[in-house]
Amino acid sequence: MSSALHADAVATLAAWRPADPAQESLRQAYLGFLAAREDACRRSCEPGHLTASALVVSAAGDATLLTLHPRVGRWLQLGGHCEASDTTLAGAALREATEESGIEGLRISPEPIHLDVHPITCSLGKPTRHFDVRFLVRAPADAQPSRSSESLDLRWWPLTALPPDTDDLHPLLSTLP
């Protein structure tokens, strides 16, 4: 994993100023974690690791693309682990969104829109935490997603009619302009 990714994560989070006090508290915690762990962006970091996700919205801004995650069994935004080739968090989120949606021409806003820490047992097979950094991604007009092997289902959901059990997406969706 490149030190460039770690440096970018520090720079990205140091520059971002969320309006919400709870998000500011998380931002400070992320920066402390990054200062303490050079391996904070690697999935092998057992105490937890940064992940990058993308809230993909339609060109019209009225729908979001969600994946039915096979391990979690719920509809979630696209995203995942940082890879050795990633040099920026935004780049990792965009790579994940492109891989998981099959949509070319996605455009990402370089500034995070939301942070979330959640416990999970990921590919290490051990309980850990994901320190998720979430970005806004816009799809081109008439984008047609193609489900990858990382998803049980993939579809556009109107922002006014999300699937059940997605209440945890509301804080993320509330960041939309």
Rank of each mutant, 00 (worst) to 15 (best):
E83T: 02
L31W: 07
P119N: 14
L152S: 14
A9F: 11
Q77V: 15
E83I: 04
C82E: 11
P177W: 13
D142S: 12
D39Y: 08
I103Q: 15
Q23H: 13
H6K: 09
A19S: 12
P158L: 04
A19V: 12
L136F: 04
W75L: 00
A35F: 03
D167F: 05
A52K: 00
S123E: 09
E150D: 00
Q77M: 10
S148P: 10
S44I: 03
L65T: 10
F131C: 00
A9S: 01
P163G: 00
W157H: 13
P145C: 07
E111W: 07
T160Y: 06
G79R: 14
D8E: 10
I113S: 02
L76C: 12
P145N: 07
V56Y: 01
E100L: 06
E111A: 05
R95W: 00
D132N: 05
L68S: 03
S151I: 08
R43L: 09
A139R: 13
H130E: 08
L115E: 06
P164T: 06
E83Y: 01
D20V: 08
V57C: 08
G102F: 07
A35V: 05
G125A: 10
S109V: 15
P47M: 12
S149H: 06
A143V: 05
S3M: 05
T175R: 12
P110N: 03
L66W: 05
H118R: 02
C122D: 14
T166D: 08
A9M: 07
L173I: 11
C82R: 11
S2A: 12
H6T: 01
A11G: 06
P112N: 02
T87V: 12
P158K: 08
T166F: 09
V137W: 03
H49F: 05
I103M: 14
S151F: 13
S53N: 11
E46G: 03
A19Y: 01
R74E: 12
L152G: 10
R17D: 12
P163R: 01
T12C: 07
C82D: 15
A19F: 12
G125V: 05
S3K: 00
L89K: 02
E83V: 06
D39T: 11
L34C: 13
R71M: 11
S2Y: 03
L26R: 06
A161E: 10
T98E: 05
D116Y: 15
A15F: 09
F33R: 11
G48Q: 04
W16S: 15
E100W: 03
E111I: 12
V57A: 11
D167Q: 01
A11D: 01
E24D: 13
H6Y: 03
R147T: 10
A60V: 00
A143I: 03
A143G: 00
A29H: 15
S44E: 10
D168L: 07
D20F: 01
G48K: 08
L169T: 04
P171A: 09
F33P: 14
A9G: 07
D39G: 05
E150I: 06
A59R: 13
W157I: 00
S123P: 01
S109D: 14
L31H: 15
A93V: 02
P177Y: 14
L89T: 01
